[in-house]
Amino acid sequence: MGKRILALDDDPDILDVYAMILSAEGYEVKTILSPDSLTNAIVTFNPDLLLLDIQLGSGTNGLELCKVLKASSLTAHIPIIMVSSHESIYSAVSDYGANDIVLKPFDIATLIEKVDDFLLGKVIPIGRRSA
């Protein structure tokens, strides 16, 4: 079973793209449209990574959600990638604790590369000495 990615965005088309491309990469993807579902989704799905938009409709700010998640001992360990076209994305890492950012409209290869950086174990070759 692949690593789990939880994506929150108020655009169902973006969520469909996440599900399609990241599932094809071997990840288990759960998408949610409402920030009201976030806590329950984290508890039940136990994600290895979160993708969050900044502008989530209904007055919810993804940056503030990120800050709250990073301040909680229960969720601080989960990498968060903010994905947005909003100009405040540039402060996501320094001011809100996000682990990385991806600008919308995003390049699929860039998104996959950033997700892989957090979820795929890096193999460091160790030289063998011949006897």
Rank of each mutant, 00 (worst) to 15 (best):
Gly2Asn: 05
Gly2Tyr: 01
Ile5Met: 08
Ala7Val: 00
Asp9Ala: 05
Asp11Cys: 08
Pro12Phe: 10
Asp13Phe: 12
Ile14Arg: 03
Leu15Pro: 02
Val17Arg: 03
Tyr18Ile: 08
Ala19Lys: 14
Ala19Tyr: 06
Ala19Ser: 11
Ala19Cys: 06
Ile21Met: 06
Ser23Trp: 04
Tyr27Phe: 11
Val29Met: 04
Lys30Ala: 04
Thr31Asn: 10
Ile32Ser: 04
Ile32Leu: 10
Leu33Val: 02
Leu33Gln: 12
Pro35Ile: 13
Ser37Met: 14
Thr39Gly: 14
Ile42Gln: 07
Ile42Leu: 05
Phe45Ile: 06
Asp48Pro: 09
Asp48Ala: 11
Leu49Ile: 07
Leu52Ala: 08
Gly57Asp: 03
Gly62Cys: 01
Gly62Ile: 01
Glu64Phe: 15
Cys66His: 07
Lys67Glu: 11
Val68Gly: 10
Leu69His: 01
Lys70Ile: 05
Ala71Tyr: 12
Ser72Val: 11
Ser72Trp: 14
Ser73Tyr: 06
Ile78Ser: 03
Ile78His: 07
Ile80His: 04
Ile81Val: 02
Met82Ala: 11
Val83Asp: 01
Val83Leu: 00
Val83Tyr: 07
Ser85Phe: 15
His86Asn: 04
His86Ser: 09
Tyr90Met: 13
Val93Arg: 04
Asp95His: 15
Gly97Pro: 04
Gly97Cys: 02
Gly97Met: 02
Ala98Met: 05
Asn99Ile: 03
Asp100Ser: 06
Pro105Val: 13
Thr110Ile: 14
Thr110Asp: 14
Ile112Met: 11
Glu113Asp: 14
Val115Ala: 07
Asp116Cys: 08
Asp117Tyr: 13
Phe118Thr: 05
Leu120Lys: 15
Leu120Trp: 06
Ile124Lys: 15
Pro125Lys: 11
Ile126His: 10
Arg128Trp: 10
Arg129Phe: 10
Arg129Ala: 13
